[in-house]
Design a protein around this nucleic acid. Structure first.
Lengths: 249, 249
DNA sequence: CGATGGTTTGAGTGTTTTCAAAGAACGTGG
DNA sequence: CCACGTTCTTTGAAAACACTCAAACCATCG
């Protein structure tokens, strides 16, 4: 009903993952070393497609699977009692998500656009951790990266202004998508707002203002942003100086 | 406190830490605070004392050591370009901190009160991950806990009001300190503010308001909070309903 | 006991939110 | 391929919340 297509996959090496696999972490094992997880999971590994806004798994659901984004993007979100939503992270192509320590998922995962993911079935984390070889390290690396990401996110949410938040977001997305000039946003303003701890109106206003200041450009196509002044963006993102008041005034 | 003698140091360049083994110090673990890592690293483990506001290690410093709080509390903080500070976490007795994936510490660690820590010398994360036994799992667990903590923190910073933030903080601290009624705060208002993404004035005002509403009590002793209405606090913390307007009005 | 620094309180300001409505892109169906 | 409706986005005005600046307060320590 909801699954659009299910395809059997051949083995695909974990190590080719841009996002999870930091060569700095395990460079020695990188070359030609088969991944135990991939090997083990190969025969149960499938690709699934999810439509825009379709849920991949919900908060509180038993964590039987983890997954890797093939195309598209996935948002990890959490809800407050009254429905307020905080998006913890966006996973882009190559990104892993759904790896949990406890028995259930602590986030809900949804596709922000039409998305395909590769699904893995995982045993408990203990056994992964106990695997001193490739699997343990890969999961370890994924975990550490999530942690760093979450911590940077906390800095952003706690201490940055709307202008700085949006700048940070745009810059980060540009890097992760390897976009030199034009970024194709794989999410709505609402998603961005819930990620940055702002409202859609503020996100929109801030983008407009950055455009007025010549830092970015907003083409007709709403889901795109063109970078005009990357260094200014970087300064803003890092809170380097008082860069809040700019140009035109 | 503990029968073992504690080494007090003033200036402390981490790199010059003496890797001595004092049988009186290291192997004796507090019964209520089992430390698997210590068991393994016993021969490299020492106890060190830090005074209030003393730095344990700085952001960007080579990560040669990690540590576990024995008594007191440690704040992990990050700075923005212009000096704004975000505290990522407080580590209380038993908490591990300083475990990194990369070559250097991504946070500065400082004692918020007079504090003693057990210091470990760690090899790179690879070797820890490769250890399928005790150490690997313990570090793994610590990492996962940090991650969950950071993610909850992001929800707090991004979506909660001052009232909700403070309530969450008080409740969390009460649980972590196993305080039934009276909480002895191991940090200043400034620390709390930088942790919650607020200013000290707002933290103070919010606490006062919670007191007026009969939810907490603020004794003369400024570093203490008495819980009066724990369930109200819990409702506030979880954003359960519109609980913002309360009592007296 | 007085000095000190952290904390509380007050008044005014500013940024972000809220509420409301117009505008524009996108998808659907003809 | 165009027209239409729907949805998302943008813009505006007013309000709310937290912040800034400033001063008083009072625990704590010497």
């Amino acid at each position: 009903m909801q699954s659009v297509s299910v395809i059997q996959e051949t083995a695909l090496p974990w190590p080719s993952l841009p996002h999870v696999y930091d060569p700095r972490l395990a460079p020695r094992h990188r070359r030609d070393m088969p991944s135990p997880i991939a090997a083990r999971a190969a025969h149960k590994c499938i690709i699934r497609a999810f439509k825009k806004d379709q849920q991949i798994f919900g908060e509180g659901i038993v964590a039987e699977f983890s997954a890797q984004v093939v195309t598209g993007a996935v948002r990890m979100s959490k809800l407050l009692g009254d429905g307020r939503r905080q998006i913890d992270a966006f996973h882009l192509a190559g990104g892993f998500f759904g790896i949990e320590s406890g028995p259930e998922h602590r986030f809900s995962a949804e596709a922000t656009v039409n998305t395909t993911v590769r699904v893995y079935r995982f045993g408990d984390l203990d056994s992964i951790a106990a695997d001193g070889q490739f699997a343990g390290k890969a999961v370890f690396a994924a975990l550490v990266q999530s942690l760093e990401c979450a911590q940077d996110h906390a800095l952003l949410l706690g201490k940055k202004s709307a202008r700085e938040k949006v700048s940070t977001f745009v810059l980060d997305l540009a890097e992760r998508l390897a976009s030199d000039k034009t970024i194709d946003l794989p999410m709505s303003r609402m998603d961005i707002a819930d990620y940055l701890g702002l409202t859609i109106e503020t996100v929109s206003r801030t983008l407009t203002q950055l455009q007025r200041d010549g830092i970015i450009d907003l083409p007709c196509r709403r889901r795109a942003i063109v970078l005009r002044n990357k260094s200014a963006l970087r300064r803003l993102a890092n809170g380097d100086v008082d860069f809040t008041l700019s140009g035109t005034g």
